[in-house]
Every structure is written in C-alpha cells, then in structure tokens.
Design a protein around this nucleic acid. Sequence first.
DNA 1: TTTCCTATTGTCCCATGGGACAATAGGAAA
DNA 2: TTTCCTATTGTCCCATGGGACAATAGGAAA
Lengths: 212, 212
Amino acid sequence: MLGIVHIVDDDASFRTAIERRLKKAGYEVATYPSAQHLLDRLPNESGPGCLLLDVRIPGLSGPELQSRLGELGSTLPIVFLTGYTDVPTTVQAIKAGADDFLTKPVKPDQLLRSIQRAISRHEATRSIRMELDTIRAHIAALTPREHEVFELVIRGKTNKEVANALGATERTIKAHRHRVMEKMQVQSLAELVSLAERAGVLDSVSGSRQTS
Amino acid sequence: MLGIVHIVDDDASFRTAIERRLKKAGYEVATYPSAQHLLDRLPNESGPGCLLLDVRIPGLSGPELQSRLGELGSTLPIVFLTGYTDVPTTVQAIKAGADDFLTKPVKPDQLLRSIQRAISRHEATRSIRMELDTIRAHIAALTPREHEVFELVIRGKTNKEVANALGATERTIKAHRHRVMEKMQVQSLAELVSLAERAGVLDSVSGSRQTS
DNA sequence: TTTCCTATTGTCCCATGGGACAATAGGAAA
DNA sequence: TTTCCTATTGTCCCATGGGACAATAGGAAA
C-alpha cells in the first residue's frame, strides 16, 4: 500500500476523476465534499497518507481547514489543488506548512509527483513523531518528584547538588534517579540527556552556563 | 539601528523610491541593480538584515540568486517583491525558505511589516547560528584521537569501553576525555552530550540502542 | 481495613570518573 | 638540533554513581 490520499473538493465529478486516477496509481483514496465531512471522521495517522485540498470549498476553506487540522495536531501533509488563487493565499498556505500548491488543470504526473513527495514526507515525519511520542510518554510516567530530579540531572547536576536543591538526602535522589533511568529506558546519562534534548526538554540550556 | 535591507532590483527609480521609504523608517539600505552586483560584495552578517529581491532581473533571477546564496551559506532572510509572478515560482521560492513574497504595487505598511518580520527572524537565526559555530569550532579544535573519544563518550560509552574500542588503556582515554571536556568548555557529561546533540553530531543515536 | 503508590533514608560495597604529579616517544615545525 | 604537539601510560587518591537489601510513613483506592 502506497498510502491513502484524502481528497476534499466540492466538485463531485472532479473528486471521482482524481480518485480513479490515484487508485490506478496504487493509492488508497477517501473523498469528502467539504472540510466538515473530513473533520467529522478525522483520518487517523496509522499509515502514511496526505491530504489533497481545494482552496475554495463551501464552509471552511482549504486554508482554514489546514489551520484547524494544525490545532488538532494532525501531521498529514497537505497538497493544495485549486483553480483560482492569488499570491497571498498561496504564500500563506505554504508558509503554514503546505507541502505543495498546484493549480487546475494539473498535469497527471505533476499531481502524482506532489502526492508522492507529500507521502514520503509524512512517513519521515511519522517516524520522528512516534519517537517523540514515546519519549514524552516516558516522561509523563515520571512522578512529580522524579520529574524534578530528571530536570536537574539532565542539566548536569550531581546527586549532591540535586539533593541540596530539592531538600532531600543524596540517598533519596539516588533512588529517584534510578527510577528515572528505568522509566526512561536508558542505560546511561548520555542517553538520558540525548532523549531530553530531542524532546525539547533542554531548550535554552545555553542560559544555564555558569561563570563560576 | 534597525538593520540593513539589501535591495536587488533593475528598476533604478523603484530602488530609490523604496530606499527612501525604508530609510525614513529607520533602516540602513544598500541597493544593487543585479544579482551579480550583490554577489560581488557579499553582505556580511555582522548585524541583522534581510534581502528584498525582485524576481525578474537581468542575469541571475531572484530565485536563482536565492539558491546561490543558500550554497554560499548565507542566512539572510529573503523577501521577494515582484510585479509578475506565477504560482510555481511563488511556491518554489517560499519552499526554498523565502520569508515572504509580495507583489507590486505593495502597500507601504505591508512592505514594512514583511521587512520587520524578516529581520526579526534573522536575529533569531543569527544567534542560533553563532552558537552552532562556536560548538563546531570547539569540535574542530579536537585532535583526531580526541574526536574519536568524543564520539564514543557522547554515546554513553564508559572509559573502559572506549579504551577497548580504540585499543588503548583506560588511563589514556581519561587523558583524552579530560582534554575533550576542556576544549569543549563543559563541566559535565550532560553538557557535552547536550552540545553534541544540538550540533547534530548525535543524529540517529536511536539506532544505537542495544538489545543486550 | 487492606493494598498500592510515592517519597524517604540507611548501610555496604564496588565500579567509574576525575584531579595531581610524572614521564616517554615520535613527528612536524622552527 | 631544539621546541612543540599529540598520543600514551603509571601511580595515588578521592568523589560520585549505582546496585543490593531493608524499612518507614502518608495518602489514595479498593
């Protein structure tokens, strides 16, 4: 399976034409006459896929649907395909992360190339996202206290320093630290820091440089 | 000083008009009648700034200049301002990282807003870039042997493991490791890993997870 | 009331990291 | 030839991390 393409367009004959074309190319296809129809049964991202959106559609416009999906946390790449457009709309859509912006009539291989690229990008995005989700899930499993220890440990504090900072014994910190390593599923401090950095927990560590 | 705006446009009267307008708004301005003129005296990035490019200019086109500057490592944000354009050109320019894409005639405050945003973005980019440059410079100062030790240490290897991997004594590794910490200007393993991750040295560490 | 989770501490003991002091060897540059 | 840099090792010694075995206390859930 090459992936699923979700088509949102109010022109029924256009939908079926594109659907036929994409299915012939090996894609799975789902069609929606309006943005609302798509939002009603939000595509899960269990497999690779992308959206093919018209800009002008009744109800929410293509770009509006794009921003709505962004709020909902969707990472499905979006390819716009529209008959009428203007520069600001185009620019805005791409800046908002659209993968491509095509105009009707579209050359078949141009469309397939854009769809292909969008889906490839989705696969890359998905794997990174899944990795991040895993890390965040592990972090979420930490108790409040463990989380405090975690935050200090990944900034290079020694057990003694953490103990002082949190008003506990070094021995206690060791216990927490041990559970942190366990829950985060890492064997070394280096791995722990690496995960934290990738999950964005360490952003702006640069500010923590001491002059002392 | 708000920053410097480099204008590339073959229309002399347009250049002076925009130049006057931007200077009035407090910006420093440099004008170039063609892409080649700008490439001849490549703007340094010692201060915040941005480029304002026409798309159709004699010689290298705006987008061609954009990609050329990319190759040269410039991080100056680009705002396109052009009279004629088509969707593919616009899409391509934005996807290639242009900050904005405006059409002539442009409303004065629209132009100023885009310039302002581009320059702000440049300031953020610059500080991140300078931080990366510092890290990379430190890494470049490592001797080949120190670099090998560095690579293994940031992946969580113990001195003993590094010693085995490199065919040296643990004592020797300690000496190298000490100099690595010194040259990288960090006090803890956590900081070292954090820097490495930010500099991209650790990419795809996920693949190093052992089943053992 | 009993059970489970979270936070805390203690004692031992051992592995690992890191600083101090010292020294050797080979290659490149002056 | 002398000087400097890089790579190597040794010996001591101490701080820190981490595992094993054990235990207490309070709050929430069953």
